Computed example of a mutant assay.
Amino acid sequence: MHDLESAESVAREIDRITQAAHPVHPFELALPPERLEPILAEYLAVTTALPYIRAGAVGLIAFDRMATGDEFEPSDDLTFAMTMMAAWHEIGGTRLVLECGTRGLPLILDTGEHFDSSLLRLDVSRLLGKDVQASFSPVTRRYLFRLHAGFADLDIIGRAAFLVSQHTHATRMLTALIARIRDAYGVSAGQLAYFNLHVDDPTHASRTETLLGMIPRAVPPSHADDFYQRYEAAYTLHTWWCESITTL
């Protein structure tokens, strides 16, 4: 029987599950330099779509509550808060407010300078020496549709599992991808815009703690085993996508 007593206990258990089920991430393996171009184009596609998918997912939950006449549950509010915090971070809001205070809010309209996708596009173009378009291949489209379904899951257990798995997987994926970029191009994260912001992110630890702290408040203790099983299944989806795009 697993527990959901605190953010710390959740962190320990998901780390154990992740390492047992996925001891090696696909991006942690050596990759030929020529494989990075399609990988980066697919990664750009996901980065571009992700904040839109998050926003659409919480909208579906709201429409369901309106259609059924059910009250919004406290767990709905919790997952909504975490979903919007992630989207706000992905469009540069967290960094702008941290660096500029309220004066940074109007700068959010400079989307070409602050959205994660805009910064990543600049990095990829620099690495490859040409303009690069996001590649929404069939496998990436399938992954994005499944992400949307997970974020919009009307069952709080599945929804929470997807939110946590996406965050923990993204951290590991990004770390491994930076290593492969360094191997292929001799460029460190500090020389790139998007990658540097995510490696040297002063809010990462607090955002992770907040996300994991949501779980004991949103998931009933009697559903701990179900939550961890769904977390593992969702994490497997993320690694499936990564493995799939290494062979495109």
Rank of each mutant, 00 (worst) to 15 (best):
L174P: 02
T175C: 07
T175S: 11
T175Q: 10
T175V: 11
T175H: 11
T175E: 13
A176H: 07
A176C: 12
A176R: 07
A176K: 07
L177G: 14
L177Y: 13
I178T: 12
I178P: 03
I178R: 11
I178Q: 11
A179N: 04
A179M: 05
A179Q: 07
R180M: 05
I181K: 01
I181P: 00
I181T: 09
I181Y: 00
R182K: 10
R182N: 04
R182C: 04
D183R: 13
A184T: 04
A184M: 05
A184H: 05
Y185D: 07
Y185K: 10
Y185L: 09
Y185W: 08
G186R: 06
G186F: 05
G186I: 03
V187D: 07
V187C: 11
V187Y: 09
S188E: 15
S188N: 14
S188W: 12
S188A: 15
S188Q: 13
S188F: 10
A189Q: 07
A189I: 12
A189N: 08
A189E: 09
G190E: 05
Q191T: 09
Q191K: 14
Q191L: 11
L192N: 08
L192S: 08
L192V: 14
L192E: 10
A193G: 08
A193W: 11
A193N: 14
A193M: 13
Y194E: 06
F195T: 04
F195G: 00
F195Y: 09
F195W: 04
N196V: 07
N196P: 13
N196S: 15
N196F: 12
L197E: 11
L197H: 14
H198F: 00
H198I: 00
H198D: 01
H198L: 05
H198W: 00
V199R: 12
V199P: 01
V199A: 10
V199M: 08
D200F: 14
D200Y: 15
D200K: 15
D200E: 15
D201F: 05
D201C: 10
D201H: 07
P202C: 02
P202D: 02
P202A: 02
P202M: 05
P202W: 01
P202E: 03
P202N: 01
T203R: 05
T203L: 04
T203W: 00
T203C: 05
H204E: 14
H204F: 10
R207D: 01
T208N: 00
T208D: 02
T208G: 03
E209K: 12
E209F: 08
E209T: 11
E209Y: 08
T210L: 13
T210G: 09
T210Y: 08
T210M: 13
L211T: 10
G213P: 05
G213F: 05
G213N: 06
M214Q: 04
M214G: 00
M214L: 12
I215E: 03
I215L: 04
I215V: 15
